[in-house]
Amino acid sequence: MNRKWLATPYLIWMVIFIVVPLVMVFYYAFTVKDVNGARFTLDHVMKTFDSKYMVALGKSFLYALISTVICLILAYPLALILVKRSKGGAAMLFIFILPMWMNFLLRTYAWLSLLETNNGLINTILRALHLPVLDIIGTPKAIILGMIYNFLPFMVLPIYNALAKIDKSLMEAAYDLGANDFKRLLKVTIPLSMPGVMSGITMVFMPAVTSFVIPNLLGSGKVNLIGNMIEQQFLMTYDWGFGAALSLVLMIIILISMGVIQRSDEDMEGGAGLW
């Protein structure tokens, strides 16, 4: 018996439950049902180019981009500090990853209580210190904060892993050749950690751009991102064909940008790097 056949149950599963459902998205996006059954149409896809949806898409990309950049700025020094601690670095890393095991919705919801304008904890403290209060619930700022909060560990982890892999003797060599700390960071550490940075960017940007829960909770439903638009088509207006077309557009844009990012990260460790 050939060992290959062990994969058969999975291959059947994969075709039925991964490939066919994606084909269904295409099917719904390009057909319309009438009395004679389903017929081909481009209406749904054309409708996604309406300014309303393009604006939502643009906003989603903008907020996700801002969140990704801030995550990178916060996570890189953090990972550097953790890697430098030869003892306890891994345990410290665990502390920074741990929040992910608290329910995602509750964690996000907790920010509402923290940020509430009138009696939220943060504003109570600010008021006690006679500082101006924060009034950001329902604005893009709160959404971006929520994205950074939820996805920061996804940036820390791959960068940490990449940094931990760097051969210490390279740093010594750079030092011997006369490079100062800053130059070593610029010429050795950063270039060698790029695969980790790339995975991190993918793992933050992707969920951020498609999130509909964070805008619903922290944006109080006032800011509509592309994820909200898709959710509404399926659960409120029941326009499944158009919802499928929006999903399709989103999926294609994401897969293309992913392809671009992954090209510089050949070994595709992103998904498996969680542990």
């Binding site: 998205v25 898709i230 989103l250």
Partner: peptide, 9 residues
């Protein structure tokens, strides 16, 4: 790689 929302739908 795909967005959860697309997979769900």
């Amino acid at each position: 790689l795909n967005a959860d929302i697309v997979t769900g739908i």
